[in-house]
């Protein structure tokens, strides 16, 4: 009997491209209901692939991904009942909004998900109105998504998933493409969603947002393996681990004739002592 509090259970999963290039190797971790987890790793370590596996869009070449106590397989997700159950619970905001947006207008885009889930037209309309207002993009309602700016597209992509009101949100680089004000607003919004019981799983390499959106961090290194899994404070204070995962680097700077070296990450602000 599976634990009802466990939403995702990844058991020794591996994923390789058809040319056998490994993208993920022997990953093992669980995500509980109501958790907020950040998947940290440098570019190319397999974060997006991992989210794709957790969203049942890709399928592990080794091991198994279980969601809600059921193994995610291509066959299972091709069944209407399971697909409806899973998709109405797990939403995915892609890193590249150009991929995620495929409807003729922003309005259609925001309505698409709830309509596929079978909600009534009135409820779909109300949700779309609320979400557009929430993100301040009501004026884009009749525009074609492809004609929008990068930041606007990202907001529409977020709106299109929020309107589905899934209990789990998978976010691939949620901060990318947003201007600083919207980024700050969105992070605060995610915190609020989490306090309402949503499960958040965000893949990022931006350390500046991690402690805002996650209480737990899973770290992947450049050999596509999980090298750490712990609380946000624990992981962020382990500079050696972050250096190993290529999330911070040794920074050299000069004060007059004095040269300093210290660990540094590209965040909005950073602390160091001389």
């Amino acid at each position: 009997m599976s634990d009802p509090d466990i939403i995702f259970d990844l058991q020794q999963i591996g994923y390789s491209y058809s040319d056998l290039t490994p993208v993920l190797c022997a990953l093992d971790f669980k995500v509980n209901r109501g958790e907020s987890v950040a998947i940290l790793g440098a570019n190319g370590c397999g974060k997006s692939t991992l989210l794709g596996l957790m969203n049942g869009l890709l399928f592990a070449t080794e091991g198994a991904v279980q969601a809600y106590g059921q193994r995610l397989t291509e066959d299972k997700l091709a069944r209407e009942d399971f697909a409806h159950f899973f998709r109405s619970r797990v939403g995915f905001v892609f890193q590249n909004p150009d991929i995620q947006l495929f409807c003729p207008t922003v309005w259609d885009e925001v309505c698409f998900g709830p309509l596929q889930l079978g909600l009534s037209p009135e409820e779909v309309r109300q949700r779309a109105i609320d979400v557009l207002a929430l993100l301040g993009i009501e004026h884009l309602r009749e525009r074609a998504p492809f004609s929008l700016s990068g930041g606007e597209k990202k907001k529409v992509a977020i709106a299109s998933v929020l309107s589905m009101n899934t209990e789990v949100l998978l976010l691939d680089e949620p901060e990318s493409g947003l201007d600083p004000r919207t980024q700050a607003w969105f992070i605060e919004f995610l915190r609020r969603l989490h306090s309402h019981g949503k499960t958040l799983i965000a893949a990022t390499h931006d350390l500046s947002i991690v402690d805002e959106v996650a209480s737990r961090i899973v770290v992947l290194d450049e050999s596509h393996r999980l090298i750490a899994d712990g609380s946000t404070d624990e992981i962020l204070s382990d500079q050696e681990l972050l250096l190993k995962a290529n999330l911070v680097h040794e920074h050299i700077h000069h004060h007059g004739g004095v040269t300093h070296r210290h660990l540094h990450s590209h965040v909005l602000g950073h602390r160091h002592s001389h």
């Binding site: 997700l77 309505c111 998900g113 596929q116 309309r125």
Partner: peptide, 13 residues
Amino acid sequence: MLSRGFQGEPKLL
């Protein structure tokens, strides 16, 4: 599309 519940026939308003 699959991720947002598409199952072969798009439903629209």
